[in-house]
C-alpha cells in the first residue's frame, strides 16, 4: 500500500508541471490580455508598451514561464486589480466557505444517495426503485439556480426557517474567525450560537448544491449494487450460509463501493471548483462567486491564480480517490 501511495504521489509531479504550463498559456491566449484589461480598449501604443514592460510581457515566453513558476512557488500571485489585496489572501479567505458548503452538500448527497440507491437495487422494479429513478432524473434536470431560488422563496422568505443569504447573520459581526470555517470557528471559540448560525446559513445552498451529486450517487449505487448482487461470489457467500447482513456489508457493499467512491470524489472536486451559481444565488462569499466576479472584472491576477488553485484542488481530490481505491481494492494496490 505504501509503495502504491508513493507512486501515486510521485505521479503528481508531471501532472502539476503540465497544469502550470496549461494555465500559463491559457491566460496568455485570452483575447485582450492584461494590458487591455488595465488600460481599456483605446490605450495609446506607448502606454501599452509601458505596461507590457512593467509586467515582463515583452520578454521571451520561456523567461516569462520561469518567472511565473518562481512566483507560484513563492505563493506570490500579485494583487487583485479590483480589491487591491494580495490574491493569496483573497482566495484563502473565501476557500473555507466553499469547503464548508461542499462538505455539507456531499454529506447530504452521500447520506441520502447511498441508502436510496441500495434500497432501489434490492427492491429492483418496486415503487421505491421507480421513485428514486424519477427523482434522480429530476435532480439532474432541474437547473441549480432555479432550485436555489425556489428553496430560498419557500424556506427562507415564506416560512422564515433559514436565512436568505450570506455566511453568517448580521448580528454576528463580532465573531472571531481563527480558521475561516465558520461552523468550526463557532465551536473552537466557545460560541455555539455562532456555529448554529453558520450551519443555518449552509443548509439551503447545500441542499441546492447536493441535488446533482445526490442524483449521480443514487444512480451509480443502484447500478453497482445490482451488478455486484448478481456476482458469483455473492452466490458463494449465500452457499456458505453467511447471514444476510454479513453478505450485504462484507460481500455486496464492499465491492459496490468502488464506482461509488469514484463518483463521490469527482463530484466533490466539481463542487469545490464550481459552485458559482449556488454561491451567487445565496450571496455566499465562496471561491466560485469570487472567481465569477473576477472574470467579469477582467481581474487577471485573480483569474490566473484561481484557475491554478482550483485545478490543483481537483488533482488532489482525485489523488485521494485513487488512494481510497487502493484501500478498498487489493487488486489495485498489489498489482
Amino acid at each position: 500500500m505504501l509503495r502504491f501511495a508513493a507512486r501515486r504521489v510521485l505521479l503528481l509531479v508531471p501532472i502539476l508541471i503540465g497544469l502550470s504550463i496549461l494555465v500559463f498559456l491559457f491566460v496568455r491566449a485570452l483575447p485582450g490580455g492584461p494590458e487591455t484589461a488595465l488600460l481599456g480598449e483605446n490605450a495609446t501604443p506607448e502606454r501599452v508598451a509601458q505596461v507590457r514592460e512593467l509586467y515582463g510581457l515583452d520578454r521571451p515566453v520561456y523567461e516569462q514561464y520561469v518567472s511565473y513558476v518562481q512566483s507560484v512557488l513563492s505563493l506570490d500571485f500579485g494583487t487583485s486589480i479590483t480589491t487591491r489585496q494580495p490574491v493569496v489572501e483573497e482566495i484563502a479567505r473565501r476557500f473555507p466557505g466553499t469547503v464548508e458548503l461542499t462538505v455539507t452538500a456531499m454529506i447530504i448527497a452521500v447520506a441520502v444517495g447511498i441508502p436510496l440507491g441500495f434500497v432501489a437495487a434490492r427492491r429492483y422494479g418496486s415503487w421505491v426503485d421507480n421513485l428514486s429513478t424519477a427523482g434522480s432524473l429530476l435532480g439532474i434536470a432541474i437547473p441549480v439556480f432555479a432550485l436555489g431560488y425556489l428553496l430560498k422563496y419557500f424556506f427562507a422568505i415564506k416560512l422564515g426557517w433559514f436565512p436568505t443569504q450570506g455566511r453568517e447573520g448580521s448580528l454576528m459581526f463580532r465573531n472571531e474567525h481563527p480558521t475561516g470555517f465558520y461552523v468550526l470557528d463557532g465551536i473552537v471559540t466557545g460560541n455555539p450560537e455562532a456555529a448554529v448560525d453558520a450551519l443555518r446559513h449552509l443548509i439551503l445552498p447545500a441542499l441546492a448544491l447536493a441535488t446533482i451529486p445526490l442524483a449521480f450517487i443514487t444512480r451509480i449505487t443502484r447500478a453497482s449494487v445490482l451488478e455486484v448482487t448478481g456476482e458469483d461470489y455473492v452466490r458463494t457467500a449465500e452457499a456458505k450460509g453467511m447471514t444476510r447482513s454479513v453478505i450485504t456489508r462484507r460481500h455486496i457493499l464492499r465491492n459496490a463501493m468502488l464506482p461509488i467512491v469514484t463518483v463521490v470524489g469527482l463530484q466533490t472536486g466539481l463542487l469545490l471548483s464550481g459552485a458559482v451559481l449556488t454561491e451567487t444565488v445565496f450571496a455566499f462569499d465562496g471561491i466560485g462567486r469570487f472567481l465569477a466576479q473576477a472574470v467579469f472584472a477582467r481581474d487577471f491576477p485573480v483569474i490566473q491564480a484561481g484557475i491554478l488553485f482550483l485545478a490543483v484542488i481537483f488533482v488532489l481530490v482525485n489523488l485521494l480517490v485513487d488512494l481510497s481505491y487502493g484501500l478498498l481494492d487489493p487488486r489495485v494496490r498489489t498489482r
Binding site: 456476482e231 458469483d232 461470489y233 452466490r235 458463494t236 457467500a237 449465500e238 452457499a239 456458505k240 450460509g241 453467511m242 447471514t243 444476510r244 462484507r250 460481500h251 464492499r254 465491492n255 478498498l328 481494492d329 487489493p330 487488486r331
Partner: peptide
Amino acid sequence: LRALRGREIAMVFQDPMSSLNPVLS
C-alpha cells in the same frame, strides 16, 4: 436454511475466477 448451508451442505462452483470475493483475502 442459512444455518444449514455451508455447515451440512456445501457447494463448489464452476468458475473459481469469479466465485471468490476479490476484495477479501
